[in-house]
Amino acid sequence: MASSWILFAIYLLTSLTTPVNGTHQQYKRSELFKLGENASLSCINKTWNQIIYILWRVSMNGVNCSITKEAHGPVYSSCSNRVTLYNKTSGESQLHIAHFQLSDEGTYHCEVAYNHGNYLLMIAVNAIVSPVLSAQLYSNGSHRFAVCSAHGGKPAANVSWEVWWSSPTITVQVRSEADTSSNITAWLELPDNVTRGNISCIATHTSWLDRRSVTLNLNEKQPSNGSAANPTFPKTQIPNQHSHRKLRRWNPMQVMYSVSTQSTTPLQISMDHNFSSHLEVLCIHHASHGY
């Protein structure tokens, strides 16, 4: 029995390193799945009439397993019973993950030897988790803030404010949690002359078909800085020099941007709300003093 396993391992290695007819293909892609749904991963658009063997190597948060099958042989698996190989009606093989969980996130390598070559595919698999959206009013001395939070989203949500006044001062903060989810908080500093009416926090997320919103009534009494819901108030940069500059690109998992102005000239902010890449802030203002 041990000899047959050794011969099979040698066969796998030589098949993967020695392309048939010189064909050796390697690809990468990513997949997102909602928690609790059945997930299917396709590897190659070929049927078992063309495939010699297929091997899946899975790395999930430090837990490794594999599942393999030859064209006319049984399936060998060291993975969970929820992870299985099955054939589509067209005859193509897929990896099936029943009731997708956070623990199933990881890297899935598929290796196929077929009649005319070898095929390698790496799939980055992650969960989709809907964030919880909320909005509140806070005060910190003479400063008043409307704060919108999208908590626990995977991937990160995009959050913004819809207001009726021009040139709002907004600070967006992104915090990554230990479970790789993200908390997005958008701070809107309220002008002194804005004391009544409604404003809306708008959020979008991969798990939602449409954008979602929370309406905040500015007539409500704001909790003080010493309340039980005391937040960490953002620090702002006070530009007071004529400038036209692009601020540095921040790590998307740190504070994304913090801008404000004391000048009467409107502050123009150009932002990319895709927090998975980068955020650029373009400040254009005029003032009489230097930094």
Results as ranks from 00 to 15, higher is better:
Ser4Gln: 05
Ile6Asn: 11
Ile6Val: 11
Leu7Val: 07
Leu7Glu: 13
Phe8Cys: 09
Leu13Trp: 10
Thr14His: 06
Thr17Met: 13
Pro19Ser: 08
Gly22Thr: 00
Gly22Arg: 00
Tyr27Gly: 04
Ser30Lys: 05
Ser30Thr: 06
Lys34Gln: 15
Lys34Val: 14
Ala39His: 04
Ser40Trp: 11
Ser40Gln: 15
Gln50Ala: 04
Ile54Pro: 00
Ile54Thr: 11
Leu55Thr: 08
Met60His: 02
Asn61Gln: 09
Asn61Ile: 09
Asn61Val: 04
Gly62Trp: 03
Ala71Phe: 10
Ala71Lys: 14
Val75Leu: 01
Tyr76Phe: 10
Ser80Trp: 00
Arg82Val: 00
Val83Ala: 00
Leu85His: 00
Ser90Met: 03
Ser90Lys: 08
Gly91Tyr: 04
Leu95Ala: 00
Leu95Phe: 09
Ile97Glu: 04
Ala98Trp: 01
His99Arg: 15
Ser103Gly: 03
Asp104Ile: 05
Glu105Asn: 14
Thr107Ala: 10
Thr107Arg: 10
Tyr108His: 03
Glu111Gln: 13
Val112Gln: 00
Tyr114Met: 00
Asn115Glu: 11
Leu120Pro: 02
Met122Gly: 02
Ala124Ile: 09
Ile128Ser: 09
Val129Met: 02
Ser139Cys: 06
Asn140Cys: 12
Gly141Ala: 10
Ser142Val: 06
Ser142Cys: 05
Phe145Leu: 12
Val147Asp: 01
Cys148His: 01
Gly152Trp: 06
Pro155Gln: 01
Ala157Gln: 03
Asn158Cys: 11
Val159Leu: 15
Val159Arg: 01
Trp161Val: 00
Trp165Phe: 14
Ser166His: 13
Thr169Gln: 15
Ile170Pro: 04
Thr171His: 12
Val172Ser: 06
Gln173Asp: 03
Val174Lys: 13
Val174Gln: 14
Val174Phe: 03
Glu177Val: 02
Ala178Ile: 09
Thr180Ile: 13
Ser181Glu: 02
Ile184Arg: 02
Ile184His: 03
Thr185Trp: 01
Ala186His: 09
Ile199Tyr: 10
Ile199Trp: 00
Ser200Arg: 09
Cys201Val: 03
Ile202Tyr: 01
Thr204Ala: 05
His205Pro: 12
His205Phe: 14
Asp210Glu: 10
Asp210Met: 14
Thr215Tyr: 04
Asn217Ala: 06
Asn219Glu: 14
Glu220Tyr: 10
Pro223Tyr: 02
Asn225Leu: 07
Gly226Arg: 01
Asn230Cys: 09
Phe233Arg: 03
Pro239Val: 04
Asn240Thr: 10
Gln241His: 06
Arg245Met: 07
Lys246Glu: 13
Leu247Tyr: 02
Leu247Ala: 01
Arg248Val: 09
Trp250Asn: 14
Trp250Tyr: 05
Gln254Trp: 01
Met256Ser: 07
Met256Lys: 10
Ser258Lys: 01
Ser258Gln: 05
Gln262Glu: 07
Ser263Asn: 04
Thr264Cys: 08
Thr265Val: 12
Gln268Pro: 05
Met271Cys: 05
His273Ile: 11
Phe275Arg: 15
Phe275Asn: 13
Ser276Met: 13
Ser276Tyr: 08
Ser277Met: 12
His278Trp: 04
Leu279Trp: 03
Ile284Cys: 05
His285Gln: 14
His285Cys: 12
His286Ser: 08
Ser288Ala: 12
His289Leu: 12
Tyr291Asn: 11
